[in-house]
Amino acid sequence: MNSARSNPISTVAMHGVLILYTLIALFPVFVILINSFKTRKKIFREPLALPDAESFSLVGYQTVLKQGDFFLYFQNSFIVTVGSLTLILLFGAMAAFALSEYRFRGNMIMGLYLALGIMIPIRIGTVAILDMMVSTGLVNTLWALILVYTAQGLPLAVFILSEFMRQVSDDLKSAGRIDGLSEYTIFFKLVLPLVRPAMATVAVFNMIPIWNDLWFPLILAPAEETKTLTLGSQVFIGQFVTDWNAVLSALSMAILPVLVLYVIFSRQLIRGITSGAVK
């Protein structure tokens, strides 16, 4: 049906442009990854060559593993990300249920109040957030980060989830109420399982910014034992700036977990964006 709209020349041209841009997008990542496996000499002499038997070297990775506590950083990032996502999803879904299911005075205003945070970045309040974390003793703990990311993620989560919860059939909930289920049971047993796809979308949206954030780890939790992977690699690379093997290896080690997560969740992420969840 679309024969009028495509001819071989334009198809080739389209692929050409897309391949070119794909190369631009992937080239830096590729260069970093291949050079992290090469000896220092080869990194400089043949930066674009793939590592072979002669130029292969893991010396950079050895430095990284010896000098930086990357497993600890990784663990911290993991705890912060999973902790924040859990709270965002649980509390966000609860609030979204309250707003979409019940009619009560102030419903509208509460919804608008929670939506304010979608557009206003939480970083503006950093000075007072640090003040508060210092006075509550939460500074340099992972809790500080988890709380901040939860607050940051809740507005969009409530917004998206309440849109989806409005679509859950009323008959189902009425049937539950007739059977004498409590409101809590209805929420956890009936509604939550039905909005799982929306929850996954919210989780994927929040995951990457939280994992990659540099600002709050730098300000709220810069201590050695609470460094996240992003901050840890930033500090490590800053110290080893002349050791190219170590820098390239540290970069590769920081790229890898995100890339793995992306491969696992990319379909979810893309479906989430393209289904119009951010409109």
């Binding site: 609860m94 509460m110 206003i120 309040g125 007072a128 003040d131 508060m132 607050a151």
Partner: peptide, 25 residues
């Protein structure tokens, strides 16, 4: 009460970690 229970955690965290520090700043 269940409405309050459903709303409380989100509103509490959002208010105390985001809105309040914003105005405090």
């Amino acid at each position: 009460w269940h409405i309050a229970v459903f709303l409380a955690p989100a509103v509490l965290i959002y208010t105390s970690v985001m809105i309040f520090p914003l105005f405090n700043t």
